[in-house]
Structure formats: structure tokens, C-alpha cells
Simulated assay, not measured.
Amino acid sequence: MEILGEKWTMVVLREVFSGIRRFDDMRVRTGIPRQVLANRLSALVGHGVLRREPYREPGARVRHEYRLTEKGFDLYPVMIALAGWGDRYLADPEGPPIRLVHRDCGAGVDAELRCADGHPVTDHRAILPRPGPGAKRRIENEKG
């Protein structure tokens, strides 16, 4: 959550996933204050989620656009799951403002959970948290 937990971060990622890569375009589309947007982009670059690519309009200085890294692209299922949640609980009666579709066939795309053996997990209560290989035992402070 250190990387994704700030409220504007997911908005910035939504824009980049939608093909908006330039600072001014993001600022106009989202209304994010200039310094906040600069900070979010810098943090996402610093964490390796985005990379900066230079470009130059004729007669203008070099600027940068922001592209997803492999680490950033791996957030796509998260973005799809968030969009699905919003579509289910927050969409207008007419429907969601955007549809995510498969480029090859045009069918809708949604996030689906599967276990490592390939079984679909449709009942979220069937998911159990277990300590992983990196888990560390918590030591409680003794008062005395």
C-alpha cells in the first residue's frame, strides 16, 4: 500500500492504462493539482511502475511521457478488479462509463480468481490466508 495507497495514484494509473501518457493531458483530464501529479508520477517512476520517455513537439523543449513498465502492467488485473467493483456498486442506472473489452473478439473482460491448480474460486469465503515463506513471527513486548 506504500506504493498504491495514496488517493491520486490509482487515478494516475487509470489514465496511463487508458493511453494518456503526457503530464498536461493527465492534469487536464483528472483535475489533479500540478504538484500532486508531479509527485505521484515521480513516486511511480521511483518504484519502477512507470518509466519516463522523452519526446519533443516541433519547436518545443524536450518533455517526458510516462509508460508502464512490466511491473506496472502486472497491475492490470488490480485495475480490472477495481473497475468491476465500481461497475457493480457505483455505476449509473444506464451502466458503467467505460467497458473493458478483449481486442481480438470484443467480449468484455473481467478479473477471475483461480487457485494454483487452475480451479476457479467463486466463493471468496473459500480463500484462507496462510503464512508464506517470508512470514516473520511477531514478538509481543513484555511489560514488566
Rank of each mutant, 00 (worst) to 15 (best):
G95T: 01
A81C: 08
D117Y: 00
H102A: 09
I139F: 03
L75Y: 05
G106C: 04
D110V: 02
Y89A: 10
H124K: 15
D87L: 07
V121M: 11
V109R: 07
E94F: 15
V101R: 08
R137K: 14
L113S: 07
P96Y: 03
F73K: 11
L100T: 08
I80T: 10
P97C: 11
P120F: 05
H102R: 14
A135T: 06
P93F: 11
G132L: 03
L100E: 11
G106I: 04
P131T: 10
E94M: 14
C115Y: 08
P133T: 01
A81Y: 14
K71A: 15
R103T: 14
P129E: 13
D123P: 05
G86A: 05
C115H: 10
A83C: 05
P129C: 10
I127T: 04
E112T: 00
E94L: 14
A135F: 12
P120S: 06
G84I: 08
M79V: 05
R103E: 15
A126Q: 13
Y76K: 14
H102N: 14
I127S: 00
C115V: 08
A126G: 09
G108A: 02
D92L: 13
G108L: 01
D87H: 12
V78F: 03
C105N: 15
G95C: 06
A135K: 11
V78N: 04
H102K: 14
V121R: 10
A81W: 12
D110M: 01
V109Q: 06
L113M: 04
T122P: 07
D110C: 00
V101D: 10
A83E: 12
R103N: 13
M79A: 07
G106T: 05
R99W: 13
